[in-house]
Nucleic acid binder design. Sequence first.
DNA 1: TCCATTTGCGTACTACGTACCTGAAATGGA
DNA 2: TCCATTTCAGGTACGTAGTACGCAAATGGA
Lengths: 248, 248
Amino acid sequence: MADEKPTSIWMQPERQERSGPGRRPGYSREQVTRTAVRIADAEGLDAVTMRRIACDLGTGAMSLYRYVPRRDDLFDLMIDLAMSEVELPDGPSGDWRADLTLLAGRVRAAGLRHPWLIALLTSRPTLGPNLLRVHEFALGAFEGIGLDIDDITGFAGMLDDYVHSAIRREIGWQEEARRTGLDPERWKRDYMGPYVRQVVESGAFPLFNRSVLESRTAHLTPEERFRQGLDRILDAVAALIAALPARP
Amino acid sequence: MADEKPTSIWMQPERQERSGPGRRPGYSREQVTRTAVRIADAEGLDAVTMRRIACDLGTGAMSLYRYVPRRDDLFDLMIDLAMSEVELPDGPSGDWRADLTLLAGRVRAAGLRHPWLIALLTSRPTLGPNLLRVHEFALGAFEGIGLDIDDITGFAGMLDDYVHSAIRREIGWQEEARRTGLDPERWKRDYMGPYVRQVVESGAFPLFNRSVLESRTAHLTPEERFRQGLDRILDAVAALIAALPARP
DNA sequence: TCCATTTGCGTACTACGTACCTGAAATGGA
DNA sequence: TCCATTTCAGGTACGTAGTACGCAAATGGA
């Protein structure tokens, strides 16, 4: 059996339950992934080490390599497991705006439940089956309004960009706070606060100052802010669709 | 002298050239940062280790800590140095569309010159002076068309989201290829290719298939593709601005 | 029963960030 | 000119990471 390492994790299926000779696997790829996700949720992505996962499973670190080729592949599996929680209807409803709002909300929920998800997702080119499923739903929502495939892809990309960026803005500093060892509230006040205050007081960036000091958006709840930005994007898409030349 | 570690790097200026007794610094914070950037450009972000930087500078690893408090702070400094290369006019020209196109192109150029830049920038909440300068220019381009500060911030954010996401899409797989040790062309063909082909042939995601197989966008040069997406965003912004209710 | 096969996992190697410490170097004052 | 003082250079070392390697244990078929 060739040890074909240099290929995507999705091409290397887990060892099947055979009925031949040899010891039976004590764990499973999904079990390893689920443990890794639990650790990342509770203590951040940095805490996800092979030794730590193995310890939680009650086994030795090297045993994990029977189920996952490399640590990086485990990240792809974690992304896919988290995305599998995004529940969606079987197909688009016909109301594209409602469908995409639903999609965005579900992805945001998954992103908040797993604060490491969006950072991981946007930092590596991964294409797990559940990411494909979610993406396909977005494409489907745009289909049937008379768009060609390039516009469908473009608009879906615009939406993805917004959703990912907005979620990262919402929770990005949480992970950073954890990395520096401070609790999030202290980090904001003691670590980043003094610098921002200094920048503001310097007056060097007047429009930045206004966006920090005068913004009404800053006083909304995170969910309202997400929704407001989403509506902005969907308004933009609607405006563009209205302006598209009729296709033959 | 208190060793105030837990605060932003921008609040901890480099030790000044004093005129008291004692040895003079042999290097500088900028020199260290510049070396780190050079290494990252040539061999990827993973190659930027304290030992490697020190080796390139011809000194010992621990000497670097005289200039940079922690390795993470060095990343902030690298981001700022790379962003300092984004040359911009002193103020907006009055043609917001031209200004933002210029801005996007310059940021893209910096992102291509430093393939690690966008990944780093979007994975940590950093606010270096040069990032603020570039952001202020974007805000300025939106000012004076009768937008309030919330709309200015919102539109500038939309643009940032697009520019960063597009650049990441353009080069994201390069870094991933380097991480796996393959050259980029081989990675695309041998690592990711077989899986994509399998997904396509399965027929499970028909719209994804069409976006891969039928897209005309895929045959454009990267620059044309970037420009096309940018125009789409700017069209959307223009459409939204036109639709905004007149403010008193 | 015995053996080919596969898993569990301890050991060990390399490489990382960085705390600590020693000694060298540079300067102002005498 | 010489020395006390201050600062920097950088070696050593500790803890932790990913993971290559190899052997013992377990298992089912012959």
